[in-house]
């Protein structure tokens, strides 16, 4: 994703490319021939698996044969899943929501500085934003575990000042949200940067001319200009964050910070007979996210977010 936005960001600066579009061509079978291989792949390995997952979520276990299932319409799986793991759902939404807000707060000034203040350092900063993400995601999360560890400088200093109520940062929700925020930050920075970079800096000057104070300019001119990027950024942050389990696994505790992703993962791999529950949880998560995303897009944005 990151390079995609970087690429489109670079293109947007090129004045050669502002086409008045005429409609595409309309000719026979060519478009279908172009589409067939890719769409076949998506159908076979995205749609069909989802249908299979849906059917698995309704399967029942053979009595007395744990790990063996038969086709059924066992809605009870959903009831079980949601009653046992409802709290994990809420936790996932809360963590992902919090991380998204934090990402926005951190990303906006950075994107703003890159678009309007960086001058010739703009491309360098763009590279710097993307670069850390070429180090493996797992390695970086483990590094955070080390940075936030009890015997590392940060936790020690906070403890010495008695600012850390529980005495730990790792094993708490703070560490999980911090990890999510860090890992999905570029997904917020790049779209916001792209829409700000496309904006005419003279609009900001005009805004500053009309409204003397910066906060009003920010609220009435800058943020609306960045709106498409903010919309795309929040989706690109929230969706993967809500389904993530690696941060909770590596930075959180064994009990109180598990997210729905952790449950799905362990139900699939470590709980005997957890298969239908895991499938029901996955389907529920997908539907929940789709509903939230659709509502959000309908409320704030256009169709072409990505």
């Amino acid at each position: 994703m990151t390079t995609a936005f970087a690429a489109s960001a670079r293109e947007a600066g090129d004045p050669q490319l502002t086409p008045p579009r005429r409609g595409g061509r309309r000719r026979g079978w060519t478009p279908y021939l172009l589409l067939v291989p890719g769409l076949l792949w998506l159908t076979l390995f995205f749609i069909v698996p989802l249908v299979q997952l849906g059917s698995a979520s309704l399967q029942s276990q053979w009595p007395g044969a744990p790990g063996y299932y038969y086709r059924d319409v066992n809605v009870g799986n959903y009831v079980d899943a949601l009653s046992s793991y409802g709290v994990h759902f809420l936790r996932s939404l809360a963590y992902a929501g919090l991380a998204t807000v934090l990402c926005f707060v951190i990303a906006f000034p950075l994107a703003y500085a890159m678009a309007f203040k960086a001058g010739r350092w703009r491309n360098v900063m763009l590279i710097l934003v993307v670069a850390p993400f070429f180090t493996s995601f797992i390695l970086r999360t483990i590094a955070w575990r080390q940075i936030l560890a009890d015997d590392a400088p940060l936790a020690r200093t906070l403890n010495a000042l008695h600012l850390l109520p529980g005495g730990h940062i790792t094993e708490t929700w703070v560490a999980v949200v911090a990890g999510l925020t860090y890992n999905f930050l570029p997904f917020m920075v790049l779209p916001i940067y792209t829409s700000l970079e496309r904006a005419d800096p003279r609009l900001l000057e005009a805004g500053r001319d009309l409204y003397a104070d910066r906060l009003t300019t920010l609220r009435t001119v800058t943020i609306p200009l960045a709106a498409p990027g903010i919309l795309a950024g929040t989706l690109l942050t929230f969706i993967p964050a809500a389904g993530d389990y690696v941060n909770a696994e590596l930075l959180g505790s064994d009990t109180s910070t598990k997210m729905v992703g952790n449950v799905i993962n362990s139900q699939f791999f470590t709980v005997l007979g957890g298969y239908p529950t895991a499938a029901a949880l996955s389907i529920s998560l997908m539907i929940l996210i789709l509903v939230l995303v659709l509502g959000y897009v309908r409320r704030f944005g256009t169709e072409e977010v990505l």
Binding site: F46, P49, L50, Q52, L53, L235, I239, P240, A242, G243, D244, Y245, V260, G261, I264, N265, F268, A278, A279, S282, I283, L285, M286, I289, L290, V293
Partner: peptide
């Protein structure tokens, strides 16, 4: 728009 766990599970 689909979380990775769901893609992986399916």
């Amino acid at each position: 728009a689909t979380p990775e766990v769901v893609l992986g599970a399916s």
